[in-house]
Design a binder for these strands. Structure first.
Lengths: 217, 217
DNA sequence: CGCGATTTCTGAACATGTTCAATAATGATT
DNA sequence: AATCATTATTGAACATGTTCAGAAATCGCG
């Protein structure tokens, strides 16, 4: 019904499309307004800053990641494999936007941004991202100490953030280096996870979990 | 002798001073040019972009870090203590710029930016930063496997980058949370380092080192 | 339908990073 | 000193993100 909703959606769609085809810097507000057949000022009626348009992209990618990862997660209960799936589908989801990755990342990382993964304001969007890794953990049949299991989704999400940072700077063909890194890291994770049950590993591990817990608060 | 050098230094000094007092966004090229008594265009003769001025700030901070850390590193040969010293003095060095840290971070995150810690343009400051952690490792008397010891400086620098990211979002008084995190993390590092010599830890550890080595290339 | 209120939209204007052709200062050579 | 090449400097102009006062469209309601 709302003409307002239509306009907003039209702007967002045009912007995302332009981000995909032209990248972040080449996508100009005037260009978006032009292609969406609206005025420059009107765009600002719906999106207070250009970064808010990047946030739309962020939400889009997140939804895409979720859509890709969910069906594949039914194929295995091994946590290492599941982690690999989550990481690779994540790379797939952001893949088309590698050219505009810097702007994308800069917008997401700015604490003033409502979508900043680390800010307090954005608990909801971040939880949405973490939930992917919660599925990774919860759907696994590996034996994991309870306290570790509780924090693992968030730890894996943090690792995924690191991988994403690497991906931004990865100029190899199709970001193959990032993919290889993801595969090897997931496999290594599967190797070391059982060590978490060793007595003399438990101490340091619990300390680590406690540090992370306190830092997060 | 060059008048050129004088002008360049004057611009850099004015910019750094303004960054400190006004922050990143509030520091305008026109403002810098004004205070340095030169024209806007002339500033661009010496610094191709505003980010290149931020790089001067990085060098300054880096030099400050080095000046703070070197004398303190003579006080102990324990690697955990040395790491703690390096982390805390690093936080001290960037301290004055915490208010506008988000702006700097956003500017630094772009790969096209001269300031990007991972880009080629910032190789000098980065090597300087890594060298601090090389000193941390080399001046220690702890027994460390050779291959690990070789890569450790860079790994510690990466951890320091992560700590810095945390610091950006840390709004606690005097960034106390970051300091506490640094202390606990350094201590934990001292605890787990000896485990690196255990036979069944060596395998995964070497795999990790190999992954990092390949990712870096 | 008429009309006032509200929402949506417009385009000019502004601030700032950046570029560039023109000008001034400097230096080398005779 | 005179001349000319090189270097340093200037300031206007441009592109783009953003703002804002007002116009246009829409809505609520008698």
């Amino acid at each position: 019904m709302g003409k307002s909703e239509d306009t907003r959606a039209k702007i967002a769609e045009t912007a995302i499309e332009s981000f995909r085809e032209r990248g972040y810097e080449q996508t100009t507000i005037r260009l978006i307004a032009d292609e969406a057949n609206i005025s420059v000022g009107n765009a600002y009626n719906y999106f207070p800053t250009k970064n808010h348009l990047v946030q739309e992209l962020y939400l889009r990618v997140q939804g895409d990641h979720r859509a890709r990862v969910t069906p594949l997660l039914t194929t295995t209960t091994d946590i290492a494999k599941r982690l690999e799936i989550a990481l690779l589908t994540g790379i797939d989801a952001i893949g088309p936007f590698h050219d505009s990755a810097p702007g994308f990342l800069a917008a997401a990382i700015s604490p003033t941004s409502a979508v900043s993964p680390f800010g307090d304001d954005a608990a909801a969007p971040r939880d949405m991202a973490v939930s992917v890794f919660r599925d990774v953990v919860d759907g696994s049949t590996n034996a994991i100490p309870a306290d570790l299991k509780k924090q693992l989704p968030e730890l894996l999400w943090m690792a995924y953030m690191g991988l994403t940072l690497f991906w931004v700077y990865d100029n190899s063909e199709g970001q193959a280096k990032t993919r290889k890194l993801a595969v090897r890291a997931a496999k290594l994770f599967g190797t070391i996870l059982p060590l978490a049950r060793l007595p003399f590993v438990r101490g340091p591990l619990n300390e680590l979990l406690d540090i992370v817990r306190e830092a997060r608060s």
